[in-house]
Design a protein around this nucleic acid. Sequence first.
DNA 1: TATGAATGAGGGTTCATTCAT
DNA 2: GATGAATGAACCCTCATTCAT
Lengths: 219, 219, 219, 219
Amino acid sequence: MPKISRQARRALTEERRKQILDAAARVFAQKGYERATIAEIARTAGIAEGSIYNYFKNKGDLLINIPRQAIQPTVETMSARMTPITSDTLPPEQMLITLAQNMIATIQQNAHIFRILLSTLPTMPQTTRDRYLNQTVLYVLTMLEAYFNQQIKRGVFRRDLNPHTLARAFVGLFFPFILIREVLQVESDQDWTYDEIIQTLVPLFLRGVMADAPKRKSK
Amino acid sequence: MPKISRQARRALTEERRKQILDAAARVFAQKGYERATIAEIARTAGIAEGSIYNYFKNKGDLLINIPRQAIQPTVETMSARMTPITSDTLPPEQMLITLAQNMIATIQQNAHIFRILLSTLPTMPQTTRDRYLNQTVLYVLTMLEAYFNQQIKRGVFRRDLNPHTLARAFVGLFFPFILIREVLQVESDQDWTYDEIIQTLVPLFLRGVMADAPKRKSK
Amino acid sequence: MPKISRQARRALTEERRKQILDAAARVFAQKGYERATIAEIARTAGIAEGSIYNYFKNKGDLLINIPRQAIQPTVETMSARMTPITSDTLPPEQMLITLAQNMIATIQQNAHIFRILLSTLPTMPQTTRDRYLNQTVLYVLTMLEAYFNQQIKRGVFRRDLNPHTLARAFVGLFFPFILIREVLQVESDQDWTYDEIIQTLVPLFLRGVMADAPKRKSK
Amino acid sequence: MPKISRQARRALTEERRKQILDAAARVFAQKGYERATIAEIARTAGIAEGSIYNYFKNKGDLLINIPRQAIQPTVETMSARMTPITSDTLPPEQMLITLAQNMIATIQQNAHIFRILLSTLPTMPQTTRDRYLNQTVLYVLTMLEAYFNQQIKRGVFRRDLNPHTLARAFVGLFFPFILIREVLQVESDQDWTYDEIIQTLVPLFLRGVMADAPKRKSK
DNA sequence: TATGAATGAGGGTTCATTCAT
DNA sequence: GATGAATGAACCCTCATTCAT
C-alpha cells in the first residue's frame, strides 16, 4: 500500500531527474565533462552523491540524458515557429531573419549546453554522438532544408541550388560569431551585435540564392 | 666538456620535442585531453614515460605547444599564398576558391588538431585559450579581413560591408561541412565533395558581396 | 535526512581521525616523514589508502595534526601539575624533581613523536614549524619560565637570574640524556637511570640558582 | 703511461670528493636528506649528475661521508684546545667558558651539518648512526668527561659527582639555545646573546659542582 | 673520466562507484 | 529512497640510477 500513487511517484522521480540533469549540465559546462566531479554535481543539485546513482546509471548516463532534458524543449519551440503556414505568409527575407534570430536566441539561452556539446562530441563514442546530433543540430538542419526545398520548388530560390548545402551554409554564416561570443567568450571581439550581423548577412545570403528577378524571365 | 656541439644538441632536443608533441597530438585527438594518459603518449612516441618530462613541464605544457608545432607551418603556407601581389593578379572568384581550398586542405590535414581544439578550448583558462586562438583561427581571420578590406576599398566588393563580418561569414559558410566531416565524422552525411561545396558557395557568396558593376551596365 | 545523529557522526569522525593519526605517528616515527608512505599508514590504520583523504587534506596535514593528538594531552597533564597552588606548597627541590620527572615521563611515553619532531622540524616551512613548537616545547618552556619568575620575585632564587634563561637551561640539563636514550637509542650509553640523573642534577641546579639564604646565615 | 702521476691523480680525486660532499652537505642542510635531489647537489657542485656516481656509490653514501669531511676538522680543532696542559693553567671558570665558547662557535660554523644530523639520525640504520655519533657528539663528550674526571680527582669539583653525567649536563645547558637559534632558527626568540648565556650559566654550573670551599675542610 | 638524456619504479592524490545504515 | 564514508584503481609526476657517447 504505497502512500503515494504510482503516478505521483513517477512525477517525483521525473522531477528529481531534471534537478540532477540541470546540475550536471551546469557543472559540465563550467568544468568540462572529465573535470566535473560527481561530488560537485551532487552539491549543485543539493543532494547526496550516492543519490545520483538512484536515478542514473553512471556519470556517462548523465551526459547522454542532458540534451533531451535541456535542448529538446527549445529545439521544439524553434521548430514550432517554422511551420509551413508561417513560411507562406512571410517574405523570404523576413522569414530568414526570424529563423536566424530564433536560432541565435536558442543558442544564447543554452550556451552552456553548447559548450558541453563542443567539448564532448569529438571524443564521444559513435552511437552516443549520433544520438546527440540527431536531437540537436541535425534536427534544425532538417527543418531548414525543408524550407529551402520549398522555396526552390516555388522558384523563389535558384533551381540549381541544393537545399542540403544551403541549410548548412546558412547556419554556418552565423557560426563563427556564435562560437566566438557564446562558446569561447573571447572578449576582445565584441564590437558588434547579433542584430547587425543578421541584418548584414541575411540580405547577403539572399542576393546569393534568389532566383533572377522575373523581369528577365524573357531571357 | 660536452661531447656533442651545442648546436647538435639543440637540434636533437628539437627533434625529440617534435616527436613527443606529435604523439601527444595524436592521442589527445583520439581520446580527448583529459582521457589521454602520459603513459599512452609515451608509448606512442616510443619513449619512456619519464622522458617526456625532460622536454615538457607537464601534461598541460604538451597541450599548449601543440598548435605551434602542428598548425603554424600550414597556416604560414596559407598566408604566403595571400600576398597582395597574388590577390592583385587573381580575379576574386579564383582567389576565394583558392582560399577556401587552402583552408579546407589545412584543416583536413590537421583534423586531429582541430578535434583537440574544439574539445579543449571551451574549458581552458583564458590566457591559454587566447594564445591558442591567436596562433590559429584568429590568424587566418585577420588575413582574410585584410583581403576583404582591400577589395572593398577598390570598389570590387560593396562599400556598405564590414570586412570583419565578411571574413567570419566566409569562413563560417564552410564550417558546418568541415565540422560534420572532419571533426564529428558523421558518416550519414557524405554525399558531397568539398569541391562541389566550394563551387556552389563561393559564387553564392560573391553574388552577395560584389558591388553592382556600373561600367558593365551597358553590356 | 541523516540516519545518524549529528553528534554521533562527529564522534565517529573524531575516532577515525585519531586512528589514522596514531597510525601516521607510528609510521613517521619509524621511517621518518619522507620515507613513510600513505599506503603503509593506511595499512597500519587498517583502512584503505583513499580513506585517509576523507579525514586529512594531504600527507602534510597528517604531520601537522600529530602533536595536538599525541602530545597535547600529556602536555596538559603536565601543566595541570604546575598550578601556582601546587608550587606554593612544595619546596623548590621537590617541585623541580617532580617537574623533571613529569617532563621525562611525557617524553618517554611519546618518544616516537619526538623522533618525528626532530627529524622534521629542521626542514619544515616556517609557519608549520612555529605551530608545532608552540604546541609543544615552547608551551612547556613558558610554564617553567612563569615558575622561575615567581621564585625569583619571592627571593627564593637569585635576583640576578633571568627566568627565560633558567627555564631553557633547566630543560637542557636533561636534554642529552633524553636524546641519547629515547631518540637516538644509543645502547652503549645505558648505565644510568633517569632517577639517578634527576637526583644529581636538580640539586646541582638548585645550588646554582638558590639565593644565598641570609636568614639561615646564623645557623 | 698516465699523464699524471698516481699521487696527483689521488689528490685530484680527493679534491673532487670534497667538492661534492660540500655541495651535498649544503643541500641536505637546506632541504633535508630525502628532499634533496642529486640534480641539485650536482648543480651546486658545478658538475654533471652522473659524475657524482664516479665518486660515490649512491645518495646514501654521500650522507655517510659528510661527517668525516665536514665535522671532523672542526671537532679536532676543538679538541686541540682542550689539552690537559691548557686545563692545568686555566682556572675552572675560565676553562668552562672557553669550552662553551668553542663548542658554540663550532656549532655555529657548522649549523647546516647539525641540521642534517638532527633530521637524519633518528631514522638512520643503527650502524650508520653510531658511526656518525662517535665522530661527533660522543667525541666531544668524551673529552669533557676526561676534564671533569680530572677536576673531581683533584678535589676541585665535588667527589660525589659522576663525570659522565656532568659532561652531558654541561653540554645540555646550552643545548636549547643552540637548538632554537641555529637549528630551528626561531626568530621570535632572539633577545639574548651567547655570551650572556655563557656568563650566566657557567657560574651557575660551577656553583653547583664546585666542592665546598676549603674553609669548611675542618668540618 | 665527464656528461646528461633515458629510464621506470614508486608515491601522493583524485574520484567514480558501492553499500551498510 | 537517501545518505556519505569507504574503497582502490588509475593517473601524473619525481628522481635515483644507468649508460652510450
